[in-house]
């Protein structure tokens, strides 16, 4: 079955692009295709590197990180372990190093954990570092998902509805974190249904409907396009 069709666009480095469209338009599917979780044809390039045909871990290594629409924290691991899992550093820990380079290793591991704790402190969750992620509230786990993005060394970040179901105060916290990610040189594509947030945060908007792009431009531009109005208001 084909979910996405004839979809083509370019994302500018350092921008925040909103990917919007009705339920079932194919927004999450696009993220999955980019991450090689769905088979795809065509071409998706990060700078000059082709992503189609890579495996999910290769896509990550090339500098892409993401969140999922439903929280994907690992419930039977601690909050800190969840953060560590997305750290690029963890990949450098081989069995050889565990036994033959243990001094450097434990030093590095301490630094990396301190980094995780620092992030938690920033959002006032340092007390939760050692509890199981499954014991977090919904909003807290959405927040930790965003913190994971600071641990991973990325150029491009995909956010799938990072604000859904959140209290306004938490939306502010996460918005601030997203700006921080951009300031540190990352590019962001994010999916969101709240048009007010889209208009506030995004530099650029892409509208999907039934697996195809129906409009693209600034928010004020696309909101006036008849196809978009029709897709949103229904027939």
């Amino acid at each position: 079955m084909k979910i996405l069709n004839d979809l083509s666009f370019t994302i500018k480095e350092g921008s925040i692009t909103g990917l919007i469209g009705p339920n079932g338009a194919g927004k999450s599917s696009f993220f999955n295709a980019l991450f090689a979780l769905f088979p795809s044809t065509g071409s998706i390039k990060l700078e000059d590197i082709e992503l189609v045909g890579k495996t999910p871990n290769q896509v990550n290594h090339l500098g892409v990180c993401r969140t999922f629409q439903d929280s994907k924290l690992l419930p039977q691991m601690t909050v800190l372990e969840n953060l560590m899992l997305s750290s690029k550093y963890s990949e450098t820990v081989t069995l050889r190093r565990v036994f033959f380079d243990s001094k450097n290793l434990s030093e590095e591991q301490k630094n990396e954990q301190a980094q995780g704790i620092k992030l938690l402190r920033k959002v006032g969750l340092e007390k939760k570092a050692h509890i199981l992620a499954g014991d977090l509230s919904y909003g807290q786990s959405k927040l930790i998902e965003i913190l994971k993005l600071f641990m991973c060394d990325s150029k491009l970040i995909l956010l799938d509805e990072p604000f859904s179901g959140l209290f306004p105060e938490m939306i502010k916290v996460i918005t601030r974190l997203i700006y921080e990610l951009v300031e540190s040189g990352r590019t962001i594509i994010f999916v969101e249904h709240n048009m007010k947030l889209i208009s506030e945060i995004c530099d650029h908007v892409i509208v999907l409907d039934a697996g195809t792009k129906i409009a693209e431009g600034t928010f004020d531009h696309v909101r006036k396009i008849p196809a978009v109005i029709e897709a949103y208001l229904g027939d």
């Binding site: 979780l37 871990n57 990180c65 994907k72 997305s86």
Partner: peptide, 10 residues
């Protein structure tokens, strides 16, 4: 899936 998306060759 999460482990792979986080960059690990599971």
């Amino acid at each position: 899936t999460v482990a792979r998306v986080n960059g690990h060759n599971v």
